[in-house]
Simulated assay, not measured.
Amino acid sequence: MDKSMMKGIAVGGLAMVVLGASGVTGYKALTQPKFADVVAVKEINETVVTPRERCENVAVQRAAPVKDQNRIAGTVVGGLAGGLLGSAVGNGTGKTVATLAGAAAGGYAGNQVQKNMQQKDVVTTSEQRCRTVNEKSQKLVGYNVTYRLDGKDGTVRTSFKPGATLPVKDGEVVTTPPAPTAKS
């Protein structure tokens, strides 16, 4: 056998090995599943806490402003009433003493009555009171997807809700969201 024939056989043999290997690889690529069946989909939610200010109007009572700080009106009216009552008692000097004592006692009583009335005199106003409250809500963060591929079950997390199948590439489930389709 000559050299060129040997080279031809070697090149031919190598070509057969390459073609055979690519045929097996091509056959495997053609026979690999393109989709995995979705068995179950479970939403994964997260609790989100959002602080918010809540305000409301509240009725507030305060002591009314006092117009007669020294309670002169109560003292005078009480003194006059006490003096009149005291003058109705007794005769002569006793009447004068009773009038003065009645005026003094009435003045004191009138002063105290006015004091009690001023303490109970209130003004009601409305005030806005605010406080921070935390509102809770649920936020969807993804899906736990159980799938079946080649008779075996597996689980992946996706950011999108899958349909009945998930795409498979190179024997692995693809978890990237599908590209949006243009609507006509």
Results as ranks from 00 to 15, higher is better:
Pro51Ser: 07
Asp121Arg: 11
Leu19Ile: 15
Gly102Ile: 07
Gly90Asn: 05
Val38Phe: 04
Thr124Arg: 08
Val123Tyr: 00
Arg71Gln: 06
Ser184Asn: 12
Gly154Gln: 03
Thr165Trp: 06
Gln138Val: 10
Ser126Gly: 04
Ala21Leu: 15
Ala10Pro: 01
Met6Gly: 13
Ser159His: 05
Ala88Gly: 14
Leu14Glu: 01
Gly20Val: 08
Thr155Gly: 01
Arg62Lys: 12
Lys120Trp: 02
Thr124Lys: 11
Thr132Phe: 11
Thr47Trp: 01
Glu46Ala: 03
Leu84Gly: 07
Gly142Lys: 11
Arg52Cys: 08
Thr50Glu: 08
Asn134Lys: 12
Cys55Ile: 06
Val173Ile: 09
Asp68Glu: 00
Val122Trp: 10
Gly154Leu: 05
Asp2Glu: 07
Ala21Arg: 07
Pro177Phe: 12
Ala182Tyr: 11
Thr47Leu: 05
Ala73Glu: 03
Asp37Ile: 07
Thr165Gln: 14
Arg131Met: 13
Ala101Glu: 10
Lys120Ile: 15
Val156Gly: 07
Asn70Asp: 10
Val174Phe: 05
Val97Met: 11
Gly151Lys: 05
Leu80Gly: 09
Gly107Asp: 01
Gly79Ile: 08
Ile72Tyr: 04
Gln112Cys: 03
Lys136Arg: 15
Thr75Cys: 09
Gly8Tyr: 08
Ala29Trp: 10
Pro51Phe: 00
Asp68Leu: 12
Thr124Asn: 09
Ser126His: 10
Val145Arg: 14
Gln69Leu: 12
Val11His: 00
Arg157Lys: 15
Thr158Phe: 08
Gly82Asp: 07
Thr165Tyr: 01
Arg157Gln: 15
Lys139Gln: 14
Ala64Cys: 02
Val122Leu: 15
Val41Met: 06
Gly20Tyr: 02
Lys139Glu: 08
Val39Met: 01
Gln114Asn: 06
